[in-house]
């Protein structure tokens, strides 16, 4: 349904998106994940024909964004980061305007407006001025705007930002009900979002594709590895943090060591293992053999957040050892 190949977008000085390729099949919900400024919005803007790519191709439903922009635009519903609303219009008036803009015939327009108003639960404000609405309602009107012409592809840039937890759940339900006939790409930097509503995840960082996998696979991967919180104290009271870190990093099976805290000569580290490796015994031995006191050693849960940080952290030290795996994952 959506095919992106070697997509690159360069602005005057910066490369926003760097040689990204992925495919999304019909009916899938895909989460587009990355820290702020990773290139999510830029990629979406290319897909919606708002920006032309510098290099590479992108196509939606078989139509290239450069060669047949009209066909692509007809098939796409787009909710930008800030919903494109006219504050001086009433909700139903606005939806009617957008509907006509998207090419719905005037015979069907009233019916479509009624449908999306019901679907996005904005019925009680349909005759209010958009400028008077709260953020949550605005977001939902924005969503209604995106689905008004029943597009094959929905592209949503942070659809749940600014909503309260109840509204977030409602939006999630709505998205799930839309999946199937619609292909949905949604961007977010909130991880539970992806865990809950997406089948596949595309993670990008600094314009580069970091991982593309199903949510289940990503979570499995993280179950295989273990994370340990470690408190080290030097007998003389002044341990050298970088020395401790170095010693921990060379323990076999360790993938990443992060210093969390240091106070009164105690250093607290978080250590993550490679997949399927048990490192606690070896860590304890290393600390004690180095002549430090081991005050605490306790397993901590790895969340999707950790994986995300792991994947998007700039490669240095042990964090980089994950990289080959991702490339392999991207090829699937």
């Amino acid at each position: 349904m959506i095919k992106v190949e070697g997509l690159t977008k360069r602005y005057a000085r910066t490369v926003a998106v760097d040689n990204i390729s992925f495919e999304v099949e019909k009916g899938q919900i895909v989460g587009f994940l990355g820290p702020n400024g990773a290139g999510k919005t830029t990629t979406m803007r290319v897909l919606t024909c708002f920006l032309p790519p510098t290099a590479g191709t992108a196509s939606v439903a078989g139509f290239d964004v450069l060669e047949h922009p009209m066909e692509v635009k007809r098939r796409i519903g787009y909710l930008p980061e800030t919903p494109p609303l006219y504050p001086e219009m009433e909700v139903s008036e606005y939806l009617k305007f957008v509907g006509q803009l998207k090419g719905i015939s005037s015979a069907d327009i009233a019916k479509r407006v009624d449908q999306v108003v019901g679907r996005c639960a904005v019925g009680d404000v349909r005759n209010k001025l958009i400028g008077k609405l709260s953020k949550g309602y605005r977001q939902r009107v924005g969503l209604a705007q995106a689905i008004i012409h029943n597009p094959e592809v929905l592209i949503l840039d942070e659809p749940t930002s600014g909503l309260d937890p109840k509204q977030i759940i409602e939006i999630r339900e709505l998205l799930k009900s839309l999946a199937g006939d619609h292909t949905i790409i949604l961007s977010t930097h909130i991880l539970p979002e992806v865990e809950n509503s997406c089948e596949r995840v595309i993670i990008i960082n600094q314009g580069k594709l970091v991982a593309i996998d199903s949510v289940a696979n990503l979570t499995n991967r993280l179950r295989g590895s273990e994370a340990v919180a470690l408190e080290v104290e030097a007998p003389d009271g002044h341990p050298d943090p970088s020395e401790v870190q170095q010693r921990l990093e060379v323990v076999s099976g360790v993938s990443r060591v992060v210093m969390k805290d240091s106070r009164n000569g105690r250093l607290i580290f978080e250590v993550e293992s490679l997949q399927g490796r048990h490192i606690r015994a070896e860590l304890a031995r290393t600390v004690v053999n180095s002549g430090w006191n081991l005050n605490e050693l306790r397993p901590v849960g790895l969340s999707l957040e950790d994986i995300f940080l792991q994947l998007t952290a700039t490669d240095k030290g042990a964090g980089g050892s994950h990289a080959p795996q991702e490339v392999e994952g991207a090829g699937k």
């Binding site: 803007r45 919606t48 024909c49 708002f50 009209m70 635009k73 007809r74 796409i76 787009y78 930008p80 980061e81 800030t82 494109p84 609303l85 006219y86 504050p87 957008v98 803009l101 998207k102 090419g103 705007q145």
Partner: peptide, 14 residues
């Protein structure tokens, strides 16, 4: 300024 230009430019209209 308000970003609604994005709506117009991503709609099937020249």
């Amino acid at each position: 300024r308000t970003g609604t230009i994005e709506l117009l430019l991503t709609s099937p209209i020249r």
